[in-house]
Computed example of a mutant assay.
Amino acid sequence: MGKQAFEASLAEGRHRQLARMAGEWEGRFRLWFTPDELACEAAQRGTLRSVLGGRFLLHEYESRFNDEPIEGIALYGFHLDDNEWQAAWAESFGTGTQLMSCVGPGDDPRLDVLGSYGDGQGGPRWGWRTRLEQPDDDTLVITMSNITPQGEEMLAVETRYTRSK
């Protein structure tokens, strides 16, 4: 990555897009274990901040699953040389001890990345898609989908944030 390319991305490219998401956020977390039954809905607070000179966006958040607190972190970035979105995610509830690495095509203007996880019993891996969309400066929507080993994709998590005042 050349310095000029990075500076251009900060000014008007993917890194500028990440910087727009920085701030304090609050909203609703919704979780599904099966497509037709909402398992949980709770308040969620999050902080997204630019780190390492704008190279990455760090998301730290807190919510609940029933009486169980949830804490999570995600690091989002755009790899200029490989033209791809990248993310790493860990959570006290969903990822266990795994640091999930995810990548996605840079041609998509949305941050849309794909990772995978095991079923804990030695079976085939499942896919996990994460999408971030910012329809306006004060709204951020994060959706996460499970993808079965057979390729069927279904919504698992939706967080709808509004920027804190």
Rank of each mutant, 00 (worst) to 15 (best):
N146R: 12
W85A: 11
W126D: 06
A88M: 06
W89L: 00
F78D: 03
D107W: 09
S101E: 09
D137A: 12
M100R: 01
Q150E: 15
Y76K: 05
G120C: 14
S92L: 01
E84A: 02
Q121T: 14
E152Y: 01
R110N: 13
S101Y: 07
N83P: 08
M144V: 12
G106F: 00
T143K: 10
F93V: 01
G94V: 05
V113S: 14
W126P: 06
G120W: 00
D138R: 10
M100S: 07
L114D: 15
D82K: 12
A90S: 11
D137I: 07
G120K: 14
L132D: 06
A87N: 11
P135C: 06
Q134Y: 07
D107I: 12
L75G: 02
N83E: 15
Q86E: 13
G106I: 02
P135R: 05
S92H: 02
D136T: 01
E84R: 15
E152L: 07
R131V: 15
L99R: 07
G115W: 07
T97V: 09
E84V: 09
E91G: 02
R131H: 06
G118F: 03
P135F: 08
T130F: 03
P105L: 01
R110V: 09
A87W: 03
L132C: 03
E153N: 01
R110A: 14
G151K: 05
E84D: 09
L132T: 04
